[in-house]
């Protein structure tokens, strides 16, 4: 029984992977491809955030800032210093990881609301820096003319190419994360989530673990940011605001704790929400703009409803339904 379910899961994942990879060959709608590229970018951030929040139980309201750090670093290096793309993306990932490490060292002594406040503060500080460090970031007017991804003379300049690149990275991020949660650090993370004291008693170095997970998720956010910068070619501070941080957390909360698949689907749905007009071609402009205006409110409301009625997120709903009898038999 368990074996077949596992096989079913793998088959479903395979089908999904093939479907995602096939998209560029099925459509020539360049805009749709760009939108789906953004979905892939957000999915990379969510992979890291699902580890941090969904598995280790540590909240971050500052992931948009790490995303921005990666984006600005890579954009600045490639536009001003003509750094090769791959190096610039690595630098973007690196600076985000370093930022995550630096923030984690003092802040992860904090718990719950206090940690949320500290990361929120970090996001605000970075937002101010993105605007004020005009020499590097271009201030409010942003940085434009960011080159396409390229390795040597090979330039990925088609929407389909960038789509495949981003989704390739996203697939690696999810496979890596899935692997991680099934091994010793993953179990330690879950123990930490369940009870920090219990985890310590079981021999888990919780401080070290928390810092590691935080830096890893910041690095993934930075990587996604760097990829994003080269995919759009233009970045400005508003893209890395607290609003985006909250949207990212909403994806993980709605998707479900202790799950990677749940947050992935939540990332897909909540990202597409702002691009409804890309998916439904004949959609009236007014409707699209109403949905866009209410986007933050919709994701906020969905998050509140999830927390109230479905604390484990949608992943928990699926999980409980699957093994529903056993769980209910025990608890009721």
């Amino acid at each position: 029984m368990r074996w077949t379910r596992r096989r079913l899961g793998i088959t479903l994942l395979g089908v999904m992977g093939i479907a995602i990879a096939a998209v560029p060959f099925l459509t020539d709608d360049r805009y749709l491809l760009k939108v789906l590229t953004f979905v892939g970018v957000n999915a990379i951030v969510v992979a890291g955030l699902a580890l941090l929040f969904g598995y280790a139980g540590q909240i971050s309201l500052g992931h948009a800032a790490f995303f921005g750090l990666g984006a600005y670093m890579s954009a600045y290096l490639t536009t001003t210093h003509q750094t090769p793309w791959l190096l610039a993306v690595l630098a973007g990932t690196g600076i985000a990881a370093a930022g995550g490490l630096l923030l984690a060292l003092p802040s992860l002594r904090l718990k719950g609301h206090y940690l949320a406040m500290a990361t929120l503060g970090f996001n605000e500080i970075m937002s101010v820096l993105f605007v004020e460090l005009r020499g590097i970031t271009g201030g409010n007017n942003g940085l434009s003319g960011i080159p396409f991804p390229s390795i040597g003379s090979f330039v990925i300049d088609t929407p389909a190419g960038i789509y495949l690149l981003v989704w390739g990275v996203a697939a690696l991020a999810f496979l890596g994360a899935a692997n991680l949660v099934r091994t010793r650090p993953g179990r330690a993370m879950r123990a930490l989530h369940g009870s920090e004291l219990g985890a310590v008693a079981s021999g888990v170095d919780t401080t070290r673990l928390k810092v590691q997970v935080f830096a890893l998720s910041a690095a993934l956010a930075g990587l996604a940011g760097a990829l994003y910068a080269h995919a759009v070619g233009f970045i400005s501070p508003t893209q890395f605001s607290l609003e985006f941080s909250i949207l990212l957390v909403a994806m993980v909360v709605v998707g479900g704790t202790g799950s990677l698949v749940g947050p992935f689907f939540a990332a897909v749905v909540l990202t597409l929400l702002q691009y409804v007009h890309a998916l439904i071609p004949g959609l009236g402009n007014d409707v699209a703009s109403v949905i866009q205006d209410w986007e933050v409110d919709i994701s906020g409301m969905v998050m509140i409803l999830t927390v109230i009625f479905l604390p484990g997120g949608f992943a928990a709903l699926v999980r409980r339904k699957r093994i529903g009898v056993a769980v209910d038999g025990e608890t009721v």
């Binding site: 009236g284 007014d286 409707v287 409803l305 109230i308 009625f309 949608f314």
Partner: peptide, 28 residues
């Protein structure tokens, strides 16, 4: 209790889709 949020979300989506198709027909 578990299905309620799912229903709310579904209703929202359906309502917005219905809104779309209406707006669409009027704008054409």
């Amino acid at each position: 209790q578990r299905m309620l949020p799912a229903t709310v979300v579904l209703t929202l989506v359906v309502a917005s889709l219905a809104g779309c198709s209406q707006a669409d027909s009027s704008s054409d």
